[in-house]
Write a protein that binds this DNA or RNA. Structure first.
Lengths: 338, 338
DNA sequence: CTTCACAGTCGAAGCGCTTCGCCATCCAGA
DNA sequence: TCTGGATGGCGAAGCGCTTCGACTGTGAAG
């Protein structure tokens, strides 16, 4: 492998000149710079990442901690990952993937200068990793908002607003009894804060519009979604609309509605809260409150870059929800009978 | 951050002794070693990754190239990724995630000593990245088997055997007309070699048993699977069994069968070729030829480790397929009418 | 009592890069 | 002609680690 010295020799300049010419950190005459660049190109020179990291104390690597827990929704996670990697590359950073659900791993890559920032996914309200993250010698950005955000940078969809938006959309179309197919009771209890916040927003929206909200937790599976529909339409007051915030159950919900002979939106209105890609893969098109995974991943990286740049004010950013395909699966039904 | 020098001072030994004590590369007396380890622990010492990489010319990082192409089956990919990351960690390696479908990226991390091995996923028969991979200054392992494997290490499920196994299982249960719900025609044409090999195996199995194989390509979506079922059961000879090698369409297939009033396995037998996790998430249990993503990912890392260890013989490993839940969704029907 | 092997430790030379301070030029202004 | 600020480039000092050769003391062998 050619080193910077080979380039210097080929270009007839000193080591430091090559470094400055390639990094642009000092003025180098046009002519010299071109000569250096040409030599580098012809030799196929690539700076040794380790040497550079050692000398500059920056690794240009961002660690991404994605705990591969059972029950994790892979589809969603990949959206975030894709956003993170893409954004990192536009900043010339590589992404190191950590999958162990162990703060020690994150501490290791941070303390060994393997990575100079950390993005942590799937953060729970009361996440066990929080103390470790606060103690990190490098900036971190959490995707998800824990209860106590002191000293931590966080970003997520504004799920509260998303819940409110979903319910409002339906309420304004005239629905008065709305079912919320949410995460499983277990997940809710575990403090999966997105689910909790979503529910709070939905409840607030229901209260504001004076409509009834039926909570129907669902397992994150096809069968779970089907069972949730079964439950929603056979027990207690019958909803005329559904908000589904459970990507893995979405397919089951749609399929079960069809099996019950319920047409969307004629017989029942449905609003999905999901990444648009997942909604698009369904057999029917649904009105969707988008969970913009890629965008959030991208923002997480931007926030990390900012903090690497010296701005050490922790900040929580909540991305405003947007409605896709509005009206596609939401029917007006002001006079709908119970 | 404490350096090796701090540890040496705290333990009252020289720099090199610390290095040897912690790495075990030379004999160090028990007493000294314990003293060093204690000092390191108490100081919270972590070797600087860059410095180590520079001095030892090993980064202890494995690059994983996963082209995030549209239409990629995220579920499957994650299986492989999980296997790669887990195996890498057991070898003390971290994983750098590359998602650009560009050999330049791989070349960059290899040439800059950012990674000292590369695992490349989703390799096509005639993959454009092949020349670049052959020219890499570090070992590479491909997941997937291109047409020309010269000089390349490859690993994958033995899809030919898998196809044969799926068809044989059904043929031996008495089926004589079998539908193969495969990847889309586009994918097949693109040279998605797993699909091609699978089909070849299935055809071979059909020929060997003297049964008829109906090919039904399907888009990798729920709707695609449903459409494929529709096509299989309304056009031409009616199959009594289905082999489904299209994970994303699997849900649609099952749902469509149900809608047509076809019971599994009473009316139609079904064998899925899919990761067990995906099969398990379906509303019904299916006989499954497992695509052991995690295992293959793990093997890829083992192969990379081996080549890093100096063994530079390229090798192609095909993992034998296994049948899960045999008989669950395959009915005997030797006397089934056409 | 020397000699020798060997276990255990140390010193120092890099690994390839960044970056700081400094030195030449060169030209404008006095 | 001299001064002084740009401008462009150079030299050298590290960054923190690994690793090679060499050194020391110890006990066994001669």
């Amino acid at each position: 492998m050619p080193t910077i010295e080979d380039v210097a020799r080929a270009a007839g300049v000193s080591l430091s000149t090559v470094s400055y010419a390639l990094s642009g950190k000092r003025r180098i005459s046009e002519a010299t710079r071109l000569r250096v660049e040409r030599a580098a190109r012809e030799l196929g020179y690539r700076p040794h990442a380790g040497a550079r990291a050692l000398a500059s104390s920056r690794s240009d690597v961002i660690a991404l901690a994605v705990p591969f827990r059972p029950g994790l929704d892979v589809q969603i996670v990949m959206q975030f990952v894709a956003g993170v990697v893409a954004a990192a590359r536009t900043h010339g950073r590589d992404v190191l993937l950590l999958t162990a659900d162990d703060p020690e791993e994150v501490a290791r890559v941070a303390a060994s200068s393997t990575a100079d920032a950390v993005v942590v996914m799937d953060v729970a309200s009361d996440d066990a990793r929080l103390p470790a993250l606060r103690a990190l010698p490098v900036p971190s950005v959490l995707i998800g908002v824990p209860d106590d955000t002191r000293g931590l940078s966080c970003v997520d969809l504004d799920f509260t607003a998303a819940g409110r938006l979903a319910v409002s959309t339906l309420a304004e179309a005239g629905h008065t009894t709305i079912g919320l197919v949410s995460a499983s009771a277990t997940r809710l209890a575990e403090g999966a804060n997105y689910a909790v916040r979503m529910r709070a927003g939905a409840l607030a929206g229901a209260a504001a519009h004076g409509v009834e909200l039926l909570q129907v937790p669902s397992e994150p599976t096809f069968a779970g979604g089907a069972a949730a529909v079964q439950e929603a339409f056979t027990r207690g007051p019958r909803p005329t609309a559904l908000v589904v915030h459970n990507e893995a159950a979405l397919g089951g919900v749609v399929s079960a509605l069809e099996r019950l002979g319920l047409r969307v939106p004629a017989d029942v209105s449905v609003v999905a809260v999901a990444p648009s890609e997942i909604a698009a893969a369904l057999p029917i098109r649904l009105t969707t409150v988008e969970v913009p995974g890629q965008r959030i991943g991208r923002i997480a990286v931007e926030m990390a870059m900012q903090r690497m740049g010296g701005d050490d004010t922790a900040e929580t950013r909540l991305v405003a929800p947007a409605l896709l395909d509005a009206e596609v699966s939401v029917a007006r039904c002001a006079a709908q009978p119970a």
